[in-house]
């Protein structure tokens, strides 16, 4: 059996978790918002030429929550990596970023977390720089499901790191 890695996406509702997965898996985007309830699971094979191997990424698209402690913990079992998504244009989605990440670290020790600010297409670079204090220092990557900016990069880097 091919190597598979479970990646769980979480964050507030409407931040674009489903959209990021859709962009990555199908390379499409929709302006419509369909609220995810529970979890949807997708799979995509990624080849990692540097390591001469393939990996199946099993992507768990979780229901958005404005409080991470309401997450159903069984969804987290066996996770290899988390992607925590927030929306750069909505402060409510990153105002508790630090404590949300703390919670994850506690529940799933030693599981890497990648923090991404999505919808970077909606704001300017200056805006991102200005908000360094709010979320900048904790953020690994700014992405956009809409334009596809850094989406492939996000997942393939993660896959590579997990091998």
């Amino acid at each position: 059996m091919k190597i598979s890695k479970k990646i769980v996406l979480l964050g507030h509702f409407g931040v674009g978790k489903s959209s990021l997965i859709r962009r990555f898996v199908e390379n499409t985007f929709s302006e419509d918002y369909k609220v995810t309830i529970g979890v949807h699971i997708f799979k995509k094979n990624v080849s990692i030429p540097e390591k001469g191997t393939d990996v199946s990424l099993v992507l768990w698209d979780l229901e958005g929550n404005d409080d991470i402690s309401n997450t159903r913990l069984s969804y987290l079992i066996g996770t290899h990596a988390f992607i925590y998504v927030y929306d750069v244009s909505r402060p409510a989605t990153y105002k508790n970023l630090e404590s949300e990440l703390e919670f994850l670290k506690e529940k799933q020790k030693n599981t890497p977390i990648t923090v991404v600010g999505n919808k970077e297409d909606l704001v300017t670079k200056t805006y991102l720089k200005q908000n360094v204090d709010d979320f900048g220092s904790l953020t690994d990557l700014y992405v956009s499901a809409k334009t596809g900016h850094k989406v492939d990069f996000l997942f393939s880097k993660l896959a590579e790191a997990l091998i």
Partner: peptide, 8 residues
């Protein structure tokens, strides 16, 4: 293990 609300 309980898995609620799994969309397949």
């Amino acid at each position: 293990f309980n898995f609620d609300c799994i969309n397949l």
